[in-house]
Design a protein around this nucleic acid. Sequence first.
DNA 1: GCGTTCTCTCAGCGACCTCTTAGCTGACGA
DNA 2: TCGTCAGCTAAGAGGTCGCTGAGAGAACGC
Lengths: 226, 226
Amino acid sequence: MGAVRILVVEDEAGIADFVGKALRAQGYQVDVCADGIAGEHRATGTDVDLVILDRLLPGRDGVDVLRGIRAAKPALPVIMLTALGEVDDKVGALDAGATDYVTKPFAVDELLARVRAHLRSPAQPEATRLSAGGIDVDLISRDVQRDGRHVHLSAKEFELLVHFMRHPNQVLSRAQLLNGVWGYDFEPQTNVVEVYVGYLRRKLGEPGRPAPIETIRSAGYRFAAR
Amino acid sequence: MGAVRILVVEDEAGIADFVGKALRAQGYQVDVCADGIAGEHRATGTDVDLVILDRLLPGRDGVDVLRGIRAAKPALPVIMLTALGEVDDKVGALDAGATDYVTKPFAVDELLARVRAHLRSPAQPEATRLSAGGIDVDLISRDVQRDGRHVHLSAKEFELLVHFMRHPNQVLSRAQLLNGVWGYDFEPQTNVVEVYVGYLRRKLGEPGRPAPIETIRSAGYRFAAR
DNA sequence: GCGTTCTCTCAGCGACCTCTTAGCTGACGA
DNA sequence: TCGTCAGCTAAGAGGTCGCTGAGAGAACGC
């Protein structure tokens, strides 16, 4: 069985690049097309497992491309990207046959989660529980426990923790965390990351047993899975 | 398969020279262009794997050159160099389709790391661990061990050690180390290198088993990989 | 509507890091 | 053996980075 193949149809090089990188980092084989006509051709003519399709494209509009793809391959998952958050737009895309829909700016983690969801196969079922460093997370019930003690986390705190636990023992830079959890595609003047790491540490720490999130000065943070 | 080909479009001879040398030392085949028009022509017309493009050029501005390249080759990685550290500038470059962005003065090591990152292919994943002379470095977790003992290094110490370990058994001059690690493009009145070598020796040395960084009097230092 | 919770910004402080200075040590050559 | 010079190191100034508490504004639930 070969690698999973994903086609990204996106004209903005910056977005295509970072989406491509994130997908490759997950082990997918990624193909990028910068315009709609070529994208449709590639999607219908070659072996592709999933398509990520920008709504606004040079050459041919994303919705038209989508219709073309649907006509040829009714079951191929297609996730649409758009800068517009309007409801009409969403309805139009779903009517035209999009499997899912993500609005820019989006957190890469969210896109990856949707990709996994639509690719899910019996061969590689998605984990529903994460466990490391004395912390257990149930992704379905969103229940978090520290050494058996239930901990209540807000939505952002939960996402950040899950991101850390999906990348154990790796140094994650502020920029990576902002990309992955907040969806910023550049590094703005903000210290949200520090603030939220602080919240997690406070909630997940025990006396004499601090939360397993280490600071690597001038590099980022590391979740120590031990 | 031939060597990887990199085009450097840069009018300042000094920078073009030392960037070119550093790239050739890594085994890349390097082409240099001193003005924008020729650079664009070379990038679009010939077989090139990556472009390093100065922002300020005689003949044609770097951003215009970039647009020209993008129109012809949407997937070609282009790293922009600039003397200006302004955010607008950065956004402008990325909007125009730059793959990445480095501000002068930059450490050559940083530029090389970005070059590697953008050239990376699934077939040739980058090494994430370095190991020599009894020292192990994990670049992902930034963990450093001496004979199994964890060692805490500051950011600069870490960069210097990695530089040494990427050039084992070579005599590295103070100027080379300043270029590679500190980003100085000339040799100022400073003894930071001695100071930091001292820090590394103290942290990485064991009783009866000194750190493998040798002094080559009036030439530089050498990391003895054994 | 109104109170609660959540997200994020800001400013201040403390800790750590970087680099300089200055004096010392040891190697090399005469 | 001594002078000179390259390199080493201790100490400290100044800067940077990260953490925290306070609070504004938005989102949410009742």
